[in-house]
Simulated assay, not measured.
Amino acid sequence: MAEQKSEKHNCLLPLSRIKTIMKSSPDVTHVAQESLFVITKATELFVQDLAKTIHKKSGSGKSVSYKDLSTLVDEEENMQFLQDIIPKKILAKDYLDKQNNTESDDDIVMLD
């Protein structure tokens, strides 16, 4: 039992927040303490690995920018599941131009 308590204090992320996120799924009714700990540690390790990878690829010294993160997510196949959460930034003008071009392409009717 003492080992389990020391494991809880070994987490950097708050267990209560992770549990809240897990329980926000309609499929989850109960979260066992063991699974909560494992999910929390896995999340911590993922975030640490992500930060180290971005830092290596950015080569900018002490800091990492959002652009570095979004570029990594866009280029790395195993990170593409994050594209909806971490999209590349674009200017509003560029987005509107892209939308207008898409709409004008939809208006074109091909006649044979």
Rank of each mutant, 00 (worst) to 15 (best):
E44G: 01
N100F: 10
L69T: 00
Q99N: 08
K19S: 03
S24H: 10
D106S: 09
N10G: 14
V38F: 07
H55V: 02
T43Y: 03
S65R: 04
I18D: 01
E7Q: 06
Q80V: 09
L91A: 07
E44V: 07
L96S: 07
K67Q: 12
K98P: 00
I39F: 09
K62M: 12
R17I: 03
T53M: 06
Q83E: 15
E3V: 12
A51I: 15
K41H: 14
P26W: 03
S70C: 02
V28C: 06
S24R: 13
L82K: 00
K57E: 11
P26R: 06
E7F: 07
D27N: 06
T71S: 04
I54N: 00
D94N: 05
K52V: 10
T71R: 02
A51R: 11
L96Q: 13
Q83M: 11
K19E: 02
E7H: 07
L45F: 10
Q48R: 13
K23Y: 03
K41F: 03
D105V: 04
A32Y: 08
N78A: 09
K8V: 04
Q33C: 08
V38W: 05
E44I: 00
A92N: 06
S60M: 13
D68N: 12
I85F: 12
V64P: 01
L50M: 12
K56D: 05
K93H: 08
K52M: 15
F46Q: 12
D27F: 10
E7G: 00
N78P: 02
E3K: 12
K57S: 06
D112E: 15
K41S: 05
M79F: 14
I85S: 14
A32E: 15
F37Q: 03
S16H: 07
S63V: 07
K89C: 15
I85C: 10
P87S: 09
D94Q: 15
K93L: 04
N10K: 13
S25I: 04
P87N: 06
L36D: 04
Y66V: 04
T29C: 03
I39N: 00
T29L: 09
E103C: 03
A92K: 05
V64M: 08
E77G: 09
V47M: 13
Q83N: 09
T20W: 04
V47F: 11
K67I: 09
V28I: 15
Q33A: 15
L15D: 00
E103M: 08
A42C: 08
S6D: 09
A2F: 10
L50H: 00
F37G: 00
D105M: 15
R17S: 12
Y95E: 10
N101E: 12
E34H: 10
T40Y: 00
K67C: 07
F37E: 02
T71V: 10
T20D: 12
S65M: 05
I108Q: 08
I86E: 01
L96V: 12
L15I: 01
K23H: 05
D27C: 03
S58A: 14
M1Q: 11
P87Q: 11
D94S: 12
Q48D: 13
R17T: 07
D112C: 06
D84K: 12
N100S: 08
V47D: 07
K67N: 09
T20A: 09
